[in-house]
Design a protein around this nucleic acid. Structure first.
Lengths: 206, 206
DNA sequence: GTGCTTTCGCTACGAGTCGTAGCGTAATGG
DNA sequence: CCATTACGCTACGACTCGTAGCGAAAGCAC
């Protein structure tokens, strides 16, 4: 979570409790109402704050929901299950569990859609959500190279492209499975995904 | 495009030209305004019809945009480039070209987001957009099996799961690359995707 | 032609939301 | 105690929504 206000030295400080309450209320409103029917007035009532307080802290609905959804991805960690395949499956299952929650389903795609016409919002999503996920790919790849499961890569440009490709394939597949095909990314499915992905990467490295 | 009205035998028929104009106006409004600022009143003015005509034909903004976006995917065809790899790359590049257009970028994810809370809308998206894409996967897989590039699959349940997985991986990867990572799915990237995918499928079949 | 039926364009409407302004009060630091 | 900032509250004009009602237009059956 980035600082939204640069800590002016004087005056009454903003309530941190209000931030917590507002973001939680936003997620609950996403569950109850969905994106399109969510109003800032409603969130304000749920959070027990004035509507004007919301407008003092966030530019609008888009930015608020990005922050509220971003917190969901805080719990993502890279487990150490001993092998690359097991690590990937573990992360993907965590990711799928988050995407199964209604507040994520309703909010995530909506802000991505809005971001197609809003450069600042794209950057906010990248910093708050996407990078948080991508870091796991980088870390998992590095660990696999230490283990010797993937060949070390000296060319940094090639390496970056590989990470980008893997990331889009993993995240994109799970999102599409969950939100478009509307079917659970359960263990069986994740296992199949991992198998194709790892076989392909191993073969492609040769 | 499914029939929205069951062709009553008598009375003044609905103007087919109005349908065309409305859907085109909707796409142009998506380009100019994006999803959230698109209003049905605005579309009506652009199309040269009365606002009430829109409400007579579509239940709301969601359904209208689904139909408008669905027409974009009419142009998807399965090229015969001689090999499975080349066929996949051809289709994916077509798909990427559609997703690069602003009316698709703004509209597609927005309706997917709305559909997370609307079963009827999900079904409409599935019938109008998703199935149209998935058919290409089925056809391409069948052609590859004829060529001997993929092993024939007798188990229909396994086959269906494989098609689902491939579809989510291809479509999901391209959508994520284009809309979330916000980078072009150009020939180089598509080539890398295809290489990983085919190697993985070939290895996984053994 | 004469009806019958349905769609069309137009206008008007109440309901609801948006984002902002203004004001008095509360909570800090100097 | 004073300057400064955040807060809750109310009120506001502007806008959008979806619907209702009306007369006119465009088909089909006869």
């Amino acid at each position: 979570m980035q600082r939204r206000y640069p800590a002016s030295r004087t005056g009454r400080p903003r309530s941190a409790a209000a931030d917590t309450a507002i973001l939680a209320a936003t997620r609950q409103a996403l569950v109850d109402l969905g994106w399109s029917k969510l109003t800032l007035s409603d969130v304000a009532v749920r959070a027990g704050v004035a509507k004007t307080t919301l407008y003092r802290r966030w530019a609008g609905k888009n930015e608020l929901v990005v922050d509220a959804v971003a917190e969901l991805f805080d719990e993502l960690t890279l487990p150490d299950r001993g092998s690359l395949a097991a690590d990937i499956e573990g992360v993907v299952l965590q990711f799928a569990a988050i995407l199964a929650r209604p507040e994520a389903r309703s909010g995530l795609m909506a802000v991505v859609a809005e971001a197609t016409r809003d450069e600042a919002l794209r950057e906010r999503i990248r910093a708050s959500i996407v990078d948080r996920q991508k870091r796991l790919v980088v870390a998992g790849r590095a660990r696999a190279q230490e283990r010797g499961e993937l060949p070390p890569e000296s060319d940094t440009a090639r390496s970056a492209r590989a990470v980008d490709l893997i990331f889009d394939m993993v995240a994109g597949s799970v999102v599409h499975r969950t939100l478009v095909s509307n079917q659970p990314a359960d263990e069986e499915w994740v296992h199949g995904l991992t198998r194709v992905l790892l076989s392909g990467l191993a073969a492609g490295a040769r």
